[in-house]
């Protein structure tokens, strides 16, 4: 009984703690300053950027629309292409990696088979192997197979997510009772059906987490596509903007100052994930803690 009362009383009175709120305010400024900078400066032209005005406030000439237009028309509108590529890589790579992790995690958690302990041990060892260390040999392998400079060169290696398998395994082991599966089997459900209809719905929180981790990882990936792709047309937005930055650092923009486009491009490129995070809050907030099991 006391439980409910306490919980209720805890909920009833919002804790204000003024000093902590002020501290929080400072933290908020720190975390938001780069966003603010990017929003303000995406409205400036080269003169506004470099002319020595206030870096954190708008110049006299606010030209969001002009810069946006410039961004989406520069170099034949290639920026749109990059956004689509990023989306494709993130969705296919992320969903694929999640699907594989779901299957494997379930397999590890619910079946005994020869070689299981060994495989799992290898998996654990692999969790921390940095993906960056695999890029160069994978590149050479792919070049022998003629796969470099194709979308598969980015998507296929993104399917690998050992940590996702580990998370799914831990989750399934503890959250999906064998009794339920056994009951389904007794009811005449096959292995596939008891997986799909009994286990899978219960695995949803973990699936969301793994999906989120894989999508974000693929969306943010830079090293792999940088090494694999040489065709501008296949770049994800990270590599594309990185390339623009390189070009702009050489002052080579052929009349238009690339920096305004780069800043606007940075702003636009972060919007999709921010929207995704804000709208899907309900789904990821709980799931992120999976893996920190007691």
């Amino acid at each position: 009984m006391t439980v409910t009362i306490d919980a209720a009383s805890r909920r009833r009175r919002p804790q204000r703690h003024l000093p902590l709120q002020i501290l929080l305010g400072f933290l908020l400024v720190y975390f938001l300053i780069p966003f603010w900078w990017v929003v303000v400066n995406s409205s400036k032209d080269a003169a506004g950027l470099f002319g020595g005005g206030n870096a954190l406030w708008f110049a006299e000439d606010v030209d969001f629309i002009g810069n946006l237009q410039e961004l989406f028309t520069y170099s034949g509108g290639i920026y749109t292409r990059w956004l689509l590529n990023s989306t494709l890589y993130a969705v296919v790579g992320g969903v694929g990696a999640t699907a594989l992790a779901v299957l494997a995690g379930y397999g590890f958690a619910k079946y005994r088979f020869a070689g299981r302990r060994f495989s799992f041990a290898v998996l654990l060892g692999a969790v921390m192997v940095p993906a960056t260390a695999l890029v160069i040999p994978t590149f050479i392998m792919f070049s022998r197979l003629g796969l470099t400079n194709t979308i598969w060169a980015v998507i296929l290696p993104s399917l690998l997510n050992p940590f996702g398998v580990y998370l799914m395994h831990v989750y399934v082991r503890d959250a999906v009772p064998d009794e339920l599966l056994d009951a389904a089997r007794v009811d005449g459900a096959g292995e596939l059906r008891s997986f799909l209809q009994v286990a899978l719905p219960m695995m949803r929180p973990a699936m969301v987490t793994v999906l989120l981790l894989s999508v974000v990882a693929t969306w943010n990936n830079y090293f792999l596509p940088l090494a694999m792709l040489s065709d501008n047309d296949l770049y994800p937005v990270t590599v594309g903007i990185g390339q623009w930055q390189g070009i702009a650092s050489a002052n080579n923009s052929g009349g238009t100052s690339l920096w305004s486009i780069i800043i606007m491009g940075s702003l636009v490129s972060v919007i999709p994930l921010i929207i995704a995070f804000l709208t899907l809050q309900r789904h990821w907030r709980g799931g992120l803690a999976i893996g920190s099991l007691k």
Partner: peptide, 29 residues
């Protein structure tokens, strides 16, 4: 178990299970 409070194990009906299953399939497709 998991920390987050809203991770209760769904104990819904068959219809609900089907819905989850379908949505998962739909995502993949």
């Amino acid at each position: 178990m998991l920390f987050a409070a809203d991770l209760s194990i769904p104990k819904g009906t068959h219809a609900m299970k089907r819905k989850h299953f379908l949505s998962a399939v739909a995502t993949l497709v």
